Amino acid sequence: MQHPSRFALLAATACLLLTACGGGGQPHARGPSTPAGVSVQASSATSAHVMWTPDATADGVTGYEIFRAGTKARTVGAGTTMVDIIGLRPSTAYEFTVRAKNAAGRFSPRSRPVRVTLPARVPDDHRAPSRPGDLRVRAGGAHAATLSWTRSTDDVRVTSYDVYQGQSKIHTVGGDLTTARITGLRPATVYTFTVRARDGADNSSAPSGSVDLTTASAPGQGPSTEPTGFRATARTVKGVRSVELSWVPPDTDGEVTGYQMYLDGKLTTTIVWGAAAPQHAATYTFAVREKPGTTYRVKIRAKLPDGNWGTFSAERTVTV
């Protein structure tokens, strides 16, 4: 009987000790890469806004941890790349770092520290800044856009501007800036942006006027399929309150016969016509029964000739 050599036994033992013989490894055996593009902006005298760039090649990242001077301040999910840190002290300098965590529980190295000094608190400052004006947007390809607006005024000082996409805050810049570059957008998608000014006492202005942007289609994706010119108008006729929607149907290779309507993010009804569906300008009116002063968020999307649902329209807010 032939016995294995000492060398063969050593090799077999080495293979057992390694995660895989031949150089392979278990998934997520290494930690994720360090978050890049970390920045911090003073939002008010008691809060700071920390942002970072997601790694497009990250494998299995499940969340991020944000540290203030070495102490963990917040934990967020993988889909979040910004966070407000509140409860800070006015006129104080802070240092923040961010690290990623993957599905195996491994962490990336912490990012390089970023520093910010919060402004002083102004006693009895209860007046919000004026709303930003003349909001404009310029597309930057299929994945980015640049917003610009006119400066707000405040009885003390504007410390920051918050950018909203729909009802969600997605970016913050300093009070001395009147532009913001937004990245990570999806191709052939309609976005609705507004901007609010904020002062050192955390008073926020009314939102600016909204501006819509439809990002360019990706190569081979085809034309955009969202209804355009979408509007929502409150009506009251003989005591009956309603909302009138109007839009231009998307340009497709066939007839658009129906639409889904979403109220406050939830599918509410499917709009169809008994006769031929309008192809150049469409309207739809629905009655409301909630108390006066109720505000709705509404958007629609078309059923395309191939049976799929198209891209959502811009989301509109209407008070009845």
Rank of each mutant, 00 (worst) to 15 (best):
D176Q: 13
F107I: 02
E65W: 09
E255Y: 10
D253G: 14
Y296P: 05
A48N: 05
T62N: 05
T179D: 07
E255N: 12
F7T: 14
S33N: 14
G175S: 09
G293F: 04
F7E: 15
G63P: 03
S47V: 06
A42C: 06
L118Y: 02
P129D: 09
Y64K: 01
G174D: 11
A58K: 00
H171A: 12
L147A: 04
K303C: 03
M261T: 11
T153W: 07
R186T: 12
S313K: 00
A276C: 12
S39T: 15
Y164T: 05
A56P: 15
S160V: 04
H143L: 15
I86C: 06
R127E: 15
T81P: 11
G63W: 01
V38D: 01
A232W: 00
S130Y: 10
A314G: 10
V50T: 08
V137R: 00
W309T: 08
N102S: 11
V240R: 10
G229R: 02
N102H: 05
T214Y: 03
T80C: 08
K299A: 14
A100S: 05
Q279M: 08
R112I: 11
T311V: 10
R30A: 13
L135K: 04
A14H: 02
S160T: 06
T13K: 13
S168V: 12
R106W: 05
L147M: 11
S43H: 15
P129T: 05
T317G: 06
R289Q: 14
P27T: 08
V237Y: 05
G222E: 13
L118C: 08
P219Q: 10
S204N: 14
V320L: 12
K303S: 09
P113F: 00
T194R: 04
T81I: 06
P227Q: 01
A287Y: 07
L185G: 05
Q279W: 08
T46G: 07
A78K: 06
E255M: 07
T268E: 14
N203K: 04
T295Y: 07
D264S: 13
P90L: 02
V288K: 00
V288E: 03
A142C: 04
H3Y: 14
D212V: 09
P32G: 01
F67Q: 10
T295R: 05
Y94W: 06
D202M: 09
V137H: 03
H171L: 13
G254Q: 04
G31W: 01
V137G: 03
A104S: 06
G310A: 02
R301F: 06
V76I: 11
T294E: 03
V61N: 00
T172Y: 00
D253V: 11
G79E: 08
